[in-house]
Structure formats: C-alpha cells, structure tokens
Write a protein that binds this DNA or RNA. Structure first.
Length: 576
DNA sequence: AAGCCCCTCAACCGCATCGCG
DNA sequence: GCGCGATGCGGTTGAGGGGCT
C-alpha cells in the first residue's frame, strides 16, 4: 500500500525523497524540518492510529479537526469509508503520495471514492483541490514569469475574476495561484495608488475587442443598445451609506450631472481600479444583492438588459429599486453612461429626484486620442454622469474597502439573463460596448442633425476629439465640449516624464504618481490625470464657472449635504 | 533577540451547476 | 419536476515566513 522509500538526499535544508511505487518513481522535495512530521504521517496513515509527537504533527492534530463535527459538515458527508474521521489542514507528503498513487491508478474524478479506496482521511473535495493545485504532473511551479503576469492582467481585463477560465489559458497554472497572485497584485497597487490595468494592456485589449467586433463578434450589441437608447429610464433613489473614500490615496473624479452638480469620486477607486474593470462593471451594475453567483458569462450592462431593459420594463429599473447596495447605482449611472442616448438629456428635470428621464454619457461621447477610453475618463476634470437623487447622496462615497467589496461582489441573477455581450464581464468589454454605443449614439445624432458629418469611421473612443462632439442637446453638452475643446491629449507619458496637460486658461502639471514597489512592468502612463480637486483649486474652473458650475444652488446643496466629496463641491464654490 | 507587521499561499468554505435516477 | 451526489468556482481565512524596528 505504501511506497517503498528509495533514497534520501539532503541539500541546503531540503530533503529529496525518492520512492518507487507501482513501477513509478516519485520524487519529493521536503524542507528538512518536515521530515519528522512526514514520517509520522506515514505511520499515521498506514495504521490509522498515530500518536504524534513532532511539532508539525502537533500542529496537525490541533488543526485536523478529528474531533470536530465541522469537518464532516465541511466535506458534506463526514465520515465515510468506515468511520474514519476526516482530516483538515495542510497535506503531508504521505497523503500526497497516497493521492498521487490513487489518481495514477484510477484517474481523476470520483474524488469521494479516494477516501474509501485509499484510506486517505480527506474528503473528496480536499483531494480534488490538492490534486488540482499541487499534485497534477503538469503543474508549473514557481513564480509567474513576466509573460504570465502580463497574460494574467490581460485575461483579467477581459474576464474579470474568472480564475478557472484564466487558468485554462495559462498552462500549468491553477486558478488558486492566479487568484492569489491577482489579489496580491490588487493590494499592492492599491497601496501604491496605481490603476489595476496598465494602459497598454487596455489599449491592446480594446484593439483586440475591436477586431472581434469587426469580425462580428458583437454584431448584436449595437442593436441591443439601440433598443433602449431612446427610452426613458427611471433610476431609483440611492443612498450612499457608510461610504467613505480614501481620498488621500487617489485623486477624485468629478462627475458633473446635467445640472452642474458634481459627484466627486476618488478616481482610483472607481475608475482606475474598477469602474472599468469587470468587477466594478459587474457589481456596480448589479441590481441584486450578491446572493447568487453567476456562472459563465456576465453582462457588463446586465442591468440594462433583461429585467431592466426598456423593452421589458418601459425603461424603468424595477430591480434597481429592489436592491441597492452601496455604490451600485452610482455604477449604474456610470456604467449606463454610454447607454443613454444623448438625445434624452433634454428631458432631464433636476427636480425629479430619483428619476432621470434622460441622462448623459459619462464622457459625453468624448474621448481624446491615444489613450484608452477608460484611462481617459480619469483625465477628465469633469465627467458627466446621470447621477440620480442628489438629495439622497447623504454621505461620502464608499471607502476603498467598500469599493473593494463592490469589486468582489458577484454578479447577479440578472446578469445571467441579461447578457448584452457574448463575452461580457471584462473591462474591455465594457469599453467596447461603450464605444459601440457611443458610435450608435453619434450616428443618431448625426442623422438628426443632418449637418456636419463627423467622421464616424473614427474607430474608437480614443480617436474621438473632445471639441468635435459637443453634445448639442445636453444642457451641458456644449459646455463640456467647450471646456475640453482645448484639451490636449497626451500620450506616451511616463512617470519619469510628467506631462503638461493643456487646459483652457490653465496648465496642469501632471501629477507624478508613486508607483510603489510594484515591478514596474506596468508603464507609468497609466494615469494621465490631473487631479480634479487640484483643478478645482486651480483657476481651471474659473473658465468653466459659467458653464459647468453655474448652478450655485446645487453646489451649495451638495456641499451642505456632503454629497460625494463635499469638500470638492465647496472647493468649487470657493473657486467660483 | 524579540516583537510586530505584512505578505504569501495553501486550504477551507459556501454556493452554484451539472448529471443522474 | 425533484432530490441528491459530485464537481467546480470564487471568496475568505489563517499559518508561516520574512522584513523591519
């Protein structure tokens, strides 16, 4: 039953154990300190009665939950195969050997039978995990290579937290490995105040998605969007409770609503980290609590389709009323940005709290060249967005942790049934859809205006010029356009080379971000983002005070109510 | 050297999905 | 259609190690 140990070798504290079993040679590398425990485990497994004396065995004993009923619950069956208590905690080499032998003999699958047939005191679930994550012969051990890291980032941009799918594209790597890597990376970059996705990857993926689009991958997307474009949307009131932004970590992003109000959102939290990411997309657009997780594809604009689609709900979002988690509506607002036909803006009535009969594209259809759209959003000193219910925005926006929670929030039931995108769920899908929608919207506008023909061949958001597409209908469209008409897009900036962003009436020196301890593979041009609060404090907005900030009352309201970053509203007030 | 903090990663846990009777 | 077991997936936890003070 047990392997015949062949030889032992010790090198630099690592013991190399070789043994043969069933004409197969196994080699195991073990830290020296574990030797005693391993031998102890061998005895334990072989006899099912073991008095452990080593330190590691003591740890195991305390952890393995032999006497704990939770073990049975955890593995959904408890004792099987003759009443053997199931063990928890770290696997020993002996257990590994048993499992390897079993799988070698019987193949993968039927994991619950492992315990029955091999005597291994582990539940099937644990066996499967151990095999998949550590014992599989095709596993690639060691740190991720730079190529793999980049691939992971690209995949995450496309897929979101679909670890298993990502692992399938990274031979020899496990979902757990990738997940851990990503989570670590997220934390690291959060600390450093960096965006999650480097701009080059976004750009590359946008290009890929665009190619897919041209190949017809998203052939139905436009029509789907166009289905709801002309509709009125009722966006529910929303309360941002317990929301605090860690504003010192990242620059806020201003979202100016059609009345000129400003929602000041830390850019890193909402935009650079996730509004554009699959998880922000998913969770922010989710209209149901994270009770159910969706398998397979999730739609970025899930809330806009299915139950929330105008075709089904006359433009309202009933489920949005039902479930409002922190920030979800905000995300809806932002995520919906591109989904709203600019034509609708004229219908907007600021007094109708919670209801935005029309709304405005987040970017007002404008992006600048050379940067992916998601990155460009960060550049805006002001972003237009259909933020609903200003009067109910009674507290600051989510803290970073809150946002993290939102990031991690699973998609919703609706997302599954509301797929707009066949690929869904990734940042780049979001960008793509936004691009598509903007193009559709522009097309409509151009048709209606039947005047100047703007080059619709402009392939992507990043090819659009600010001043060229001033929204002729939005109360602020023109203003915004005028504000940005002189905006000079930058490209190829780097942290070593702070950029000057030309703004009307002012020049804003590009803030140099602390890129922290990260590996530096991500280029430093991720954010070309003059801090909006800086802009507010500069005289930049003096130029805009007759346009963006002509509604003193609303600003005062925002300031008093502490909406978003009240300080920013106050700053704006003081600037004005 | 000791204590603390932070990071990494293996493993657990809960839930969803699938397939079968 | 329903129940159940097997499997898969993603979020979370906690032990252990390394670095810093």
């Amino acid at each position: 039953m047990f392997p015949k140990w062949g030889k032992f070798g010790v090198t630099k504290g690592i013991i190399k154990l070789s043994f043969s079993k069933s004409n197969t040679l196994f080699t195991k590398l073990l830290p020296f300190r574990l030797l005693q425990g391993v031998l102890g485990q061998l005895l334990q497994v072989s006899s099912f009665r073991m008095s452990m004396t080593s330190e590691s065995d003591d740890r195991m004993t305390s952890q393995d939950g032999v006497d704990s009923p939770s073990v049975e619950e955890a593995c959904g069956g408890g004792n099987t195969g003759g009443g053997l208590p199931l063990k928890k905690g770290p696997w020993t080499s002996a257990e590994d050997a048993i499992l390897v032998e079993y799988v070698t003999k019987h193949g993968e699958g039927n994991w619950n039978a492992v315990q029955k047939h091999s005597g291994l005191a582990r539940c099937g679930k644990s066996c499967r995990l151990r095999w998949a994550n550590h014992l599989r012969p095709d596993l690639k051990k060691g740190a991720f290579t730079p190529e793999e890291e980049r691939h992971i980032i690209e995949l995450h941009a496309k897929m979101g937290n679909k670890w298993a799918r990502m692992a399938a594209e990274l031979p020899g790597r496990t979902d757990n490995e990738i997940k851990n890597y990503w989570n670590t990376r997220i934390k690291r970059r959060q600390r450093a105040g960096l965006p999650i996705y480097p701009s080059d990857i976004c750009f590359q993926s946008i290009t890929e998605n665009k190619q897919n689009e041209e190949l017809g991958t998203f052939s139905s997307a436009d029509s789907q969007y166009s289905d709801f474009l002309p509709m009125n949307y009722e966006i529910p009131a929303v309360e941002f409770k317990r929301l605090e932004f860690n504003q010192h970590l990242c620059p806020p992003v201003l979202l100016d609503i059609p009345t000129g109000g400003i929602l000041d959102i830390p850019g890193r939290s909402l935009l650079s980290q996730g509004l554009n990411s699959a998880y922000y997309s998913q969770s922010f657009l989710s209209t149901t609590p994270p009770a159910k997780r969706i398998r397979g594809s999730e739609s970025l604009f899930s809330g806009l389709n299915g139950d929330c689609s105008p075709s089904k709900n006359d433009g309202s979002f009933p489920t949005c009323h039902q479930h409002q988690d922190n920030g979800s509506l905000l995300a809806q607002s932002m995520g919906f940005s591109s989904s709203f036909n600019q034509n609708l803006i004229s219908d907007y009535h600021p007094s109708s709290l919670g209801v935005i009969p029309g709304s405005h594209a987040l970017l007002n259809g404008h992006t600048s060249s050379s940067e992916p759209s998601w990155a460009k959003k960060l550049e805006l000193p002001s972003l237009q967005s259909p933020i609903a219910s200003w009067g109910l925005l009674t507290s600051p926006l989510p803290s970073l942790d809150s946002v993290d929670t939102l990031i991690q929030s699973p998609p919703t039931e609706h997302t599954e049934s509301c797929n707009l995108s066949p690929r869904n769920s990734g940042l780049l899908d979001a960008v793509l859809h936004e691009s598509q929608t903007m193009r559709a919207s522009k097309s409509i506008l151009h048709q209606e205006n039947s005047g100047d023909v703007v080059d619709n061949s402009c392939p992507d958001l990043h090819m659009t010029e600010w001043g060229q597409h001033g929204d002729p209908i939005s109360p602020l469209g023109h203003s915004a356009a005028s504000v940005f008409s002189e905006y000079t897009p930058t490209s190829g900036s780097s942290s070593e080379d702070p950029q000057l962003v030309t703004m009307p009436a002012c020049k804003v020196k590009q803030e140099k971000f602390d890129y922290g301890p990260y590996d530096g593979k991500d280029d430093a041009s991720n954010l070309i983002c003059p801090r909006p609060d800086f802009l507010l404090e500069s005289n930049c907005f003096g130029h805009m005070q007759n346009t963006l900030f002509d509604d003193y009352t609303l600003l005062a309201t925002l300031s008093d109510q502490g909406c978003g970053r009240g300080s920013c509203a106050r700053n704006a007030m003081s600037t004005i």
